[in-house]
Design a protein around this nucleic acid. Structure first.
Lengths: 333, 333
DNA sequence: CATTTTTCCGGAATCGCTTGCAAATCCATG
DNA sequence: CATGGATTTGCAAGCGATTCCGGAAAAATG
């Protein structure tokens, strides 16, 4: 069943059928209804490939994400997909992994599909080493590129993120105010977002004792924390730049008999589902993921519509206090 | 840059270029290399829409899933996407929500895109009320349908699942063996998988005291559990058909001062990330998700290749014991 | 009623690729 | 060297839509 069959049954030309299909003007109400009736009766569905060929677009957005199993990223994709669907766009998903080479390879494959735009979901796509971001600049020459939780300035690149530096600063100050003396900052990799968080942590500590920092994946964290502890290092406040790391830290503390939050305060990041599964529940920084995603989609729709859109949008994050931080009143004894 | 440009630059016809592009036979090594060189130099990328139009396929699989934010489903998608990509198929995502009407609507939209096959990720797509499954039978008339964790028999429908009935039976027996007397079964909705789990629970209890069952979403669970408890009901063993429900139960127990696992044993389901975030860690039933996903993809590849494939494949689940169940030795005091 | 303007519709080109079929070229054999 | 078959190659017809452009019909105008 194609457009010719419909046109024949309705006794009109395919041009008219096409016009009806696209709600284009220049077709009388009578024939419009006649065509619509035939389409409904025959269950006709236009061929997306043919349409794509003519319009050079299939209304599809490519979503790149390092690891869909990461609850934070999955949540982001969930929000994005919802918003894109509301705008009649479909999403092509690609889990790239964390290796640069893999990312580049998968990206090339996605370009083959002629998507209308690309969304890089998660800060792990932008590195603090600028050379590693070249592949994003390159691809932006071909289609609009949206960054969620990353920032790169360049033609055709739009960044939506929250102010991680400030959030990290505030959280660190909060730890200090509640009486913590020895702070530890945990982060899983060197990407834009984590560098910013680290920077906020350092800023809050300026002029005070210097905090410790530890670069580790959630998987290796237990071992590294243990090594640190056995080496005699002590800490009474941990800012984890990822909820998974915070969970790990909490388990570490429990295993050692360190009371949380009395002897050790922990703040996580992303305010993910994980943060409500632990006991005590994790205090965590909420980076307004839904708002970020919604804004990203709106911006992209504007860009695709030819409008002039802001290149960078920064939201504020907020600290959600739960059970792994002390209240200020009881903080400094 | 299209196929004509390439053919001109290489001094051959577009038919030859196409043959090179598709690794088709009937082109001499010399011209093949000549064409490949031009393609490489010019950075030519075939137009996927045109190819799709000609072949009536763009090598794309539609993935339907009720909720990406559910860690179990997200993990499934992650596995599937990986395997499909390895087979050179892309994945179109669609988050449908749990309402039948929404599912049908989104499904129709996805069909518009002319995907090669559909994968229904999660048991929530098949209902125990057969009428509600009609939409799946209908769509299977148009393209292959794969069910992950669901079972429907019908032309062109392939089911991959694990033996939830047996797993549930085993887990229940395990609870009984460790000394539990009053069992509670929690499940969030009436779908195929949950009904099977319930059935296993009931089978293990046959001839003994009848266990309690509670149908509730994770969100409402705290309230309903509290109501139950305040009504005087007691239970010392909970089989939750979903890790999220198990987490909720654990939190409920902690809030009431009920010791886990001494006074209350809990077994979750899916062996998801959540199960390792709680304290104590959740005992949970591992349903071999990766194996299921891998098998599903292999089967689909066979189907698309015209091979005759098994319609139903059932794996065994295994109980992973962690901290919310007692060891048998210490169980019956 | 003639003329202009507007509305409505169809013919046909176009998008870029695949593929069946026929023509051309090649090589080996009698 | 002629002939047959195998190997390469090109022509051209789809695939199913969109859309420009021109003509016919209808409406508005004089």
């Amino acid at each position: 069943m194609n457009i010719y069959d419909v046109s024949k049954q309705a006794g009109v030309s395919i041009a008219t059928v096409s016009r009806v299909l696209n709600n284009n003007p220049g077709v009388s109400e009578a024939t419009r209804e006649k065509v619509l009736k035939v389409m409904a009766q025959s269950g006709y569905q236009p061929n997306a490939f043919a349409r794509g060929l003519g319009l050079n677009s299939m209304k599809t957005i490519g979503l790149l994400c390092a690891d869909f199993a990461d609850p934070f990223l999955a949540q982001a994709i969930a929000y994005l997909e919802n918003r894109f669907r509301a705008e009649a766009y479909d999403c092509l998903l690609c889990c790239t992994g964390y290796e640069l080479k893999d990312k580049e390879r998968e990206l090339a494959l996605m370009l083959t599909r002629r998507v209308d735009a690309l969304v890089f979901v998660g800060s792990n796509f932008v590195s603090s080493d600028e050379r590693d971001n070249q592949y994003i600049l390159d691809v932006a020459a071909k289609l609009p590129v949206m960054l969620l939780n990353g920032l790169i300035s360049g033609e055709n690149i739009y960044s939506t993120l929250c102010d991680d530096e400030q959030a990290s600063f505030t959280a660190t100050e909060r730890l200090l105010a509640s009486g913590c003396r020895d702070l530890l900052f945990l982060y899983p990799m060197q990407t834009y977002a984590f560098e910013r968080k680290l920077s906020g942590f350092r800023r809050a500590l300026a002029g005070r004792q210097s905090g410790r920092t530890l670069l580790t994946s959630p998987k290796n964290a237990p071992e590294l924390l243990a090594k640190l502890w056995e080496g005699g290092a002590r800490f009474d406040g941990v800012l984890a730049s990822d909820d998974a790391l915070a969970v790990t830290t909490l388990k570490f503390a429990k295993a050692r008999g360190v009371r949380v939050p009395d002897e050790l305060s922990i703040i996580g990041y992303n305010n993910s589902t994980l943060s409500r599964c632990t006991d005590p529940e994790l205090s965590s920084i909420d980076n307004k993921l839904e708002a970020l995603c919604s804004h990203l989609v709106s911006t992209l729709m504007g860009v695709l519509g030819g409008e002039n859109m802001p290149k960078t949008t920064i939201y504020d994050a907020v600290l959600i206090e739960r059970g792994t931080t002390r209240h200020e009143e009881e903080g400094v004894l």
